[in-house]
Design a protein around this nucleic acid. Sequence first.
DNA 1: GTCCAGCATTTTGAATTCAATTTTGCCATG
DNA 2: CATGGCAAAATTGAATTCAAAATGCTGGAC
Lengths: 233, 233
Amino acid sequence: MTRAPYLRLPKPRPGAQDAHESLPAFVAERLREAILAGTIPPGALLRQEDVAGRLGVSRPPVREALKQLETEGLAQYRPRRGYVVAALDPADIAEIFEIRALFEERIGQAAALHRTEEDLVALDAEILAMEALPAGTPEGGRAFGLHNRRFHDRIRAASGMRVMGELLGVLANRVERYIRLGGRLANSREQVNREHRDILAALRDGDGQRLGLLLRLHVHDAGARLLRSLKER
Amino acid sequence: MTRAPYLRLPKPRPGAQDAHESLPAFVAERLREAILAGTIPPGALLRQEDVAGRLGVSRPPVREALKQLETEGLAQYRPRRGYVVAALDPADIAEIFEIRALFEERIGQAAALHRTEEDLVALDAEILAMEALPAGTPEGGRAFGLHNRRFHDRIRAASGMRVMGELLGVLANRVERYIRLGGRLANSREQVNREHRDILAALRDGDGQRLGLLLRLHVHDAGARLLRSLKER
DNA sequence: GTCCAGCATTTTGAATTCAATTTTGCCATG
DNA sequence: CATGGCAAAATTGAATTCAAAATGCTGGAC
């Protein structure tokens, strides 16, 4: 067999930031994206050779990436049998939204104490961006989701709750696939915008109790809508 | 160089259960234990060659194990620099105990609805075992910790909250090192036993509100004691 | 005496290679 | 025709090998 050249990541420019820090991280990101988008359906086998060939790397980094996806809950490992894309029990989905609601309530209470003027300005900008988006288009939906995520990320950052933030990130990944699958769960975008306005007002007032309550209900509603949407299939 | 023999795990007997399912899992477990016991202090570099040599394996499985410990929050990775044992911010410790309190409250509410007669019997047995343990000895302390863990695990299992259980396992690992370091945080073992009795009574009555409250305070107290103990250094 | 530069060594990153298990397809048998 | 077993192929598991980057050390210059 011919000696294949020593393949490496494209050398990043000194200041370049988009290059990945390691091949496993690169592989994990691509796989994660494919799983969340539904390109690789739940239950599918993740053959190491396949993945490696598709991404132009060898198997060892793929193994490391799969190991990481396993601890993230996106893949399941069976010894000597390989990795499969994890399926999620509806009960687990409901529980994840419960956890998110619990965390968001606590985050709201903390954020009301620590928010800065810059936080308020940034959050206002996100709301304005969401209100300005067109209603029916797919790109509009994607952009809305992005701003929505940034809105909640900002509140979370202001709260200083780092561990909760980390866990929320992992949990969000686990349910993201079903959110995309569940179609427009933001059927009442106007209501979401109203709730965001209320949330911002409570944050400005420093009313932690009210903010926590609003956030909890906000997340709870989203979860209830998703579960209802999934049940209809 | 002489060709080293192809090293493998000791072949498990057909029915043997103690053998590990894979080398990475084996390495991860040994490393985790060493980190939690404090044998490897926070900030220490985890040299792949060292670890591999010490455990009699090669580097690839060590890399996979380190990747897993990273996502568990026990190790930190810096590209091209290697892995170091993660240090925990006191603020993170406090937050982890807050999360545990949050989860335990919710778990209590659910457990009160779903507990079976067998659960009550098993929990009673654990309490009796804890009450029968001698006070001052180190073995007594370890045994107490074990039964205490089983006590709470049983309630958690009865609640049916799988995701919370999974997350609690990871979080418990992260703070375990500091619990062992903090010495006898169970200085008031009698009080813990009393609280366990109250918890069991509320569970038997099916009083979810009260059970949740008791569990929340139970965990909160443990966290407060640990933080106080750590601050005294 | 101190600081900086260049080289050697160490350590990580990733690919190839080899062994063992599992799975699959085929053939024989009931 | 169905089922069980056997053999071959495919796939995972793990070690070795080779390349690149980071670290440390030494020597020289200021």
